[in-house]
Design a protein around this nucleic acid. Structure first.
Lengths: 257, 257
DNA sequence: GACGCCTCTCGAACACTGTGCGAGAGGTTT
DNA sequence: AAACCTCTCGCACAGTGTTCGAGAGGCGTC
């Protein structure tokens, strides 16, 4: 009937075809998991733009087109690599430490993971996360907020708030690292090149200039951490307030009805 | 001395060279602003991957390489287009409506603007925002939170919280639209292709499945709006609490010291 | 052993990308 | 008339993702 079905994501294709090829282990040959691992090494070391099929092939000592036996196209490869990243995120159960603390561990882990793989932030806006690791993470995250006392769609809404904030901050922070890496400049070269632009930019904008000066005083990574913690605490406060309000409403309201 | 300086961003180049070419109006010929406008039309209609220099050239009835007279490279073009997007975001002064309401208008406007240009979310993680419109937006945003009562680095931290949340949510939502557009599928085709994948994904994950069912009940855009509002309100509550706490501390604590 | 089949590799080729270079057209100034 | 500046663009190059079809090697069956 149809010549050859085109699938938009790996996950759709595998679900339809059955994941024969994924688990398969060729005795001496290639392996899908090791292809993805090699791709991750290139991505982490040199950035998204440096990953090409030919480059990945030579790294594995293999022709570029051989890779297409294990992966339908580059998009699938990137989706697989991305799901590996999601697999690195820690999310402890709320039991013992409480939901706020667990949410903090989750958010911090997600943040650090994304900064360890700055290219990943460029994928976030391009492909939906549907891999097994992403799904597992979702499941555990939903469990966390449900056990915390959120109900119905609020479970998702609360999780989305924490997660969107973390994603957004990571994306902003990583964008800097990504231009820098793709321009092949050092930190100082970039700064030197942009001081002039920054000076003219701050000239007519006093509030921005004032804040910028204050931010420069407390430098680098610790300041970024402070910003992250400030926002996260504020968010958790806001969510906790919603939780308390809900507890004081007439109980079992939906049971009566 | 140096043969030809390579600049990482337009803004650095223009600051160093002086923006001669930008304002210049060739009587009958091309124009940088109209190049950017045409690029925006392609980006909005067909997505980031469909913008190529040759395509843009033919759209303007001009050779592809002619564009390089007005723009150093494709990266600059995209930075310029991106700054245009920032220019569409509304941010009213707090005066009259109060800072919470103003922040809401800002966040909603940013959200809607990014969904109107889904490709833009892919740029967020790749290039820092340093254009004049982005800077103006920053200036006004800083003013908003400073006038609200935040001080010192808290001004930036509070703004970052609201902005990161909005960015992150927009990125997640747009990723869906971006795969869809690049796969040239209809909404329904995509759904049909992924029901199987979704079914197997939800099989071993009960919490996720439960929430998913609840989210399906209240469909589409209004639900997304509810999610956004829930998070934004929670965040503003958290920030407001910080503001009140600060007000009740011994005044002028840092003056005494 | 011979045959067919399945798994896997890969070279050649195609259509496309961003961009450097240098020639040249047209206009303005000297 | 000569020199210059602004602007356009064809050609070419190195690189991209991906298709196709040929072929190698191993395994099971007649």
């Amino acid at each position: 009937m149809v010549g050859k079905q085109q699938y938009a994501t790996v996950w759709a294709r595998e679900a339809a075809e059955g994941a024969r090829r994924a688990a398969q282990t060729a005795p001496a040959g290639l392996n899908r998991t090791q292809i993805v691992r090699a791709a991750l090494e290139i991505l982490d070391a040199e950035g998204l733009d440096s990953l090409s099929m030919r480059r990945l092939g030579t790294k594995l000592g293999v022709g570029a087109t051989s890779l297409y036996w294990y992966v339908a196209n580059k998009g699938e490869l990137i989706d697989l690599a991305m799901d590996e990243v999601y697999g690195e995120v820690a999310l402890p159960p709320a039991a013992g430490i409480g939901w706020r603390e667990a949410a903090k561990v989750f958010a911090h882990s997600l943040h650090r993971t994304l900064l360890r793989h700055p290219w990943a932030t460029r994928i976030l806006g391009a492909r939906p996360a549907m891999g097994p690791n992403a799904m597992d993470l979702s499941e555990r995250a939903m469990a966390l907020f449900e056990d915390a006392g959120f109900t119905g769609t609020d479970i998702d809404y609360a999780l989305s708030t924490v997660m969107s904030f973390t994603l957004g901050l990571s994306v902003s922070e990583a964008s800097w690292a990504e231009t820098l890496k793709s321009s092949r400049m050092s930190d100082d070269e970039w700064m030197a090149q942009h001081t002039e632009a920054l000076r003219t930019a701050l000239a007519g904008r006093p509030r921005l200039a004032a804040i910028h000066a204050k931010l420069l005083a407390e430098d680098g990574p610790p300041a970024r951490q402070a910003r992250f913690d400030y926002g996260l605490d504020a968010i958790l406060d806001g969510l906790a307030a919603r939780l308390d309000a809900r507890r004081q409403e007439p109980a079992h309201a939906e049971d009566v009805r």
